[in-house]
Amino acid sequence: MERIPILKMGKFLLVTIQVDLYDRLALNLEEDLIQMVFKTGAKGVLIDISALSIVDSFMGKIIGNIAGMSSIMDAETVVVGMQPAVAITLIELGLPLSGVHTALNVEKGMALLESRMITGQEDDTTADDD
């Protein structure tokens, strides 16, 4: 069965979605990713959706789910490279993905995760309040 690769980069997991995401694949990704977070003890998850041009309410929900699940396992989720059309669609669908951090590209997403790691180490009380 087709699967989306999950790469481990230091303390973080990197997922690059390069194909059109259908429902079954998205559900598999959700499960695989949570397993990987558990196995590797990752502190952050970075999902690159720059190649994703179409999104529906189900996909929005999956992304929200992944973020929610990772955060209770102490890993932050950053979604990077969202296309304007995708962003507008999600907003029109009423899915502002409020628990998810976002960044313009992978580079900035990594920097964001790094900076959150530093603040997390310095002061554990400044947890994610978004």
Binding site: V79, V80, G81, M82, P84, V86, A87, I88, L90, I91, E92, P96, L97, T102, A103, L104, N105, K108, G109
Partner: peptide
């Protein structure tokens, strides 16, 4: 609010 949220989703 919609515009602000969409901008946030883009990572800005």
């Amino acid at each position: 609010i919609k515009t602000v949220n969409a901008t946030r989703l883009m990572g800005a």
